[in-house]
Amino acid sequence: MTGDPRAISMTVNGREVTLTVEPRVSLADALRQDLGLTGTHVGCEHGVCGSCTVLVDGTAVRSCLLFAVQAEGTAVETVEGLARGSALHPLQEAFRRHHALQCGFCTPGVLMTLVELLRADPCPTEAAVRDALSGNLCRCTGYQPIVAAALDAATVLAAEAAP
């Protein structure tokens, strides 16, 4: 019958998972509803707000525009995988220092977008940060503290990476 569920496997935050989903189920819904990873938020379901951004094989994607079946065999990273055990990731720490989140709804998508940016460009300019962020809507912060946090986190991460 049209759209019968199928079993798929993928790695999520380093853990191998298998789930059975209809092809029409978005990766966002599968993460949230089937895997209980509710940190990834759904804000528009048409690919504009960026709240649902996750990394698939290291690349930031809108998980509302990717069907879960398409992620079969990939490595998915979500906001839940960001912290280092009990310690926050430097980006998360910087967000707290700079008050780069208010309601926190867009925050997971913003964080994952910036994780991709900082991996590819460890010392981004403010313009590069704003360009990366331009696909993530935030209604609370006015973006300025997010930009400051990203630049601050880049400095911290660079210091960590230095020998």
Partner: peptide, 14 residues
């Protein structure tokens, strides 16, 4: 902040 930053917030759809 800590819960929200970890994706451990609890919004109604969660």
């Amino acid at each position: 902040d800590p819960a929200l930053l970890r994706g451990a917030g609890r919004f109604v759809d969660d």
